[in-house]
């Protein structure tokens, strides 16, 4: 029963600086296994910083606080070690990598993670079988495999590619940073279906979003507001609707008067 009570992710009093700017100051958040949490908040409030720091991006000073993932302190781990442990970040702005094709990246990533877990690497045939279903689910054309990673992709293609990678890598904790922005209604549905198909009691998700419309399709268990570098308000799905209607000012006023 021990594992049941170990949270998937526990962030305690996290302080993060970039340059001489404090971006996160005293952020607390606990995510249990199987839970989906939405984080909303005004532009520039530090949502992407949180996601990037959790994935291990260089260039941020973590001046205080702890982050444990499945009971393990991860702040000293390299990005690849975190990924191998099961953390996946879908980037707000996926990076273009000319000259490295999608199939090559996906296979290298999957096999690196399998190897780290002591599982046998997949050969080309096994890999293709796995990837074909995921591509069909994300409605991605097969030409896509031989194209360079994200290079010349439309905004929507990049976001679908992030979810394709997530489906292929099957992470324990997914951090989806504005995966819904820039998508039309159809693409949003495809992406939401992709996300929903991965929901299970062993897997947790953080959805960073501005808009309530993704949360209509992927229903979160909890909704948080990130403002001024910390979580200032938490609630259930109804909070998202309220934020959508009323904006963020009232939350900040509420915090200031408290």
């Amino acid at each position: 029963m021990e594992t049941d009570r170990t949270p998937m992710l526990e962030i305690v009093d996290l302080h993060v600086r970039a340059g001489d700017r404090e971006i996160l100051n005293g952020l607390n958040l606990t995510i249990g296994a199987g839970e989906v949490h939405a984080i909303m908040g005004p532009n520039g409030s530090g949502k992407s910083t949180l996601a990037q720091v959790l994935a291990g991006r260089d260039g941020y000073d973590i001046t205080r606080g702890q982050v444990t993932f499945l009971g393990q302190d991860i702040l000293d781990l390299a990005p690849e070690e975190r990924a191998q442990a099961g953390i996946f970040l879908a980037f707000q702005y996926p990076i273009e990598i000319p000259g490295v094709n999608n199939a090559y990246l996906l296979k290298a990533a999957l096999n690196a993670q399998r190897k780290a877990r002591g599982e046998p690497e997949l050969d080309a045939f096994e890999f293709m079988r796995l990837i074909k279903d995921n591509m069909a689910q994300m409605q991605i054309h097969k030409d896509f495999l031989s194209r360079s990673v994200n290079t010349g992709f439309s905004g929507g293609e990049k976001k679908r590619n992030e979810i394709l990678q997530m489906l292929t890598l099957q992470p324990r904790l997914a951090l989806l940073d504005e995966t819904d922005s820039g998508l039309d209604v159809d693409a949003l549905k495809i992406v939401a279906n992709g996300i929903n198909s991965l929901r299970n009691p062993e897997r947790s998700m953080i959805l960073v979003t501005h808009y309530e419309r993704l949360l209509e399709l992927v229903e979160p268990d909890f909704v948080h507001v990130l403002a001024g570098g910390r979580i200032v308000k938490s609630g259930d799905r109804t909070l998202a609707r309220e934020l959508d209607e009323r904006g963020y000012d009232w939350v900040q006023q509420e915090v200031q008067s408290a």
Binding site: G56, R57, E80, A109, A112, L169
Partner: peptide, 10 residues
């Protein structure tokens, strides 16, 4: 970072 965040060593 993008590649490392997918589990590929540096």
């Amino acid at each position: 970072f993008y590649l490392r965040a997918r589990g590929i060593d540096e």
